[in-house]
């Protein structure tokens, strides 16, 4: 387990700001103790400082996971969020999309969200902004990228995609083995 390099921290935060904007600060400045980001085999984990210190006693080869996995760095040094980060992204989300009940399953099977499945969308969502997807009863289902801005959404044709799928909680079942 190692600290993220400056370069990588920047890449990580840039990605997180796409979803939760300035709320990234809240992830670092928490009233309930110190939390930090740690890197292990290119995966980034969000851990409390105490647990990170405890985990330091475990040899890195044997350590499978610590804290919450936020995502991973690709070989080209880009950051990819995993669905495991959802529980931290959802409460701070900047742009949100609510799905109609009928479209929920489609999304959970890994499909994009089409206009017809869109229940609500938060105002001022920009095009290609990171959005968190909820169902109508406000349960976070996953996240993606807005394919259209709020204004465009209204005029869009019902079959066109509104949000590109990135991760959804269905992955916990679908791709259980490569979640971490």
């Amino acid at each position: 387990m190692k600290r993220l390099s400056e370069e990588r921290t920047k890449i990580l935060f840039e990605k997180l700001t796409k979803y939760i904007g300035p709320n990234v600060k809240l992830l670092i400045e928490r009233p309930d103790g110190l939390y930090c980001f740690r890197e292990q085999k290119d995966r980034v984990y969000y851990v409390s400082e105490k647990i990170a210190n405890l985990a330091n006693t475990i040899p890195p080869d044997l350590l499978i996971s610590v804290g919450t996995c936020f995502g991973k760095f690709t070989k080209t040094n880009k950051f990819r969020l995993h669905v495991t980060a959802l529980s931290y992204l959802a409460p701070y989300a900047h742009a949100k999309i609510w799905l109609k009940h009928a479209a929920e399953q489609q999304f959970l099977y890994g499909n994009h969200v089409s206009k017809s499945g869109l229940g609500r969308i938060s105002e001022n969502t920009e095009k290609y902004q990171g959005v968190i997807v909820f169902n109508m009863s406000d349960v976070p289902l996953g996240f993606g990228v807005a394919a259209k801005s709020t204004v465009e959404c209204k005029n869009a044709d019902p079959l066109s995609s509104v949000c590109f799928h990135q991760a959804d909680i269905g992955e916990y079942i679908r791709s259980e083995e490569d979640l971490l």
Binding site: R3, T9, K10, V24, K25, I28, L34, C36, F37
Partner: peptide
């Protein structure tokens, strides 16, 4: 580095990103 230092370091990066 100490956890406090790391935190301030991270916050500075967040500021620069934002």
């Amino acid at each position: 580095v100490s956890a406090e230092h790391e935190k301030s370091f991270n916050l500075a990066i967040v500021e620069s990103v934002l």
